[in-house]
Design a protein around this nucleic acid. Structure first.
Lengths: 140, 140
DNA sequence: TTCCTTGCAAATACTTTGCAGACTG
DNA sequence: CAGTCTGCAAAGTATTTGCAAGGAA
């Protein structure tokens, strides 16, 4: 686990290194898909880590602030998911609308398009979402 | 208002043409930005159209099924918005994170990329979301 | 010992569902 | 008149907040 990054970020913001923060970060690091708050909660329960769902929400919020975790919102899911940001390329996802499987996309074609949008709209672009849905190979 | 399309779609699915369905469709047609359920509800109240928020939700659901209205989910907004689909090009949006203004983007660069994703992931892509946030000219 | 963090309960925001009465065709 | 639609109340789901007890430094 990236314990060093966690410790450093927490100390820098006057926060404490706790069992639950380490557990949530550790789980996200060893899970290949983005997890929802409930999934984090349930998985930690299975692993006999005592944690409240409220604490999961508060923890992912802190981890987001520290820049260790990204929050993603998939198409029509109605819940947020969280994944490790640390050491990973900026990327997007595709989700199977049948079985819910989520696969990373390793390309982001939006750098050029962002420039174009900025010149057309006079906005300063800060961020974007790009998520796909479809059917995975097994569900077709 | 596209009363013809509404009537036709409703009849084809064994539904009735009602005052509230016409009112919601009419409002969406004459509003340039996508509206949330609450905004539709409040605007119709202002116009002295009696309607319940629940009915707004049920109505946009029907209009979506008929293909007259699209549901969009902007970045971190936590609520759905609805806009007229009928007669408009497929497009995306940019929202100002300061004042909430929403502007249409008239380009969608994803046709080629969809092919690429399909060949890389073996998914069959059905749909995508692409939404930008930033600062509008007035809020910069 | 300080004061940050957690758990529990409760509140909030958005959306959906159940049911009886109202309305369309 | 039959069957759909609406309003009202209530439930459901995701997330946030308040507060007192527990824990890190």
């Amino acid at each position: 686990m990236n314990a060093a990054g966690l410790k450093k970020g927490l100390k820098a913001t006057g926060r404490r290194v706790t069992r639950t923060r380490q557990a949530v970060l550790g789980l996200l690091e060893r899970t290949p898909q983005p997890l929802s708050a409930t999934e984090i909660f349930e998985q930690l329960q299975k692993e006999n880590v005592a944690i409240d769902l409220v604490t999961v929400y508060r923890t992912v919020h802190v981890l987001k602030e520290l820049g260790l975790v990204a929050q993603i919102e998939l198409h029509h899911e109605g819940q947020a998911r969280y994944e490790i940001k640390e050491g990973r390329e900026h990327h997007h996802h595709i989700q199977c609308q049948m079985c819910g499987a989520i696969v990373d996309l390793l390309l982001c074609p939006l750098k050029k398009i962002t420039k174009l949008i900025e010149s057309q709209t006079k906005f300063v672009v800060d961020d974007h979402t790009l998520e796909f849905t479809g059917l995975c190979p097994r569900c077709q």
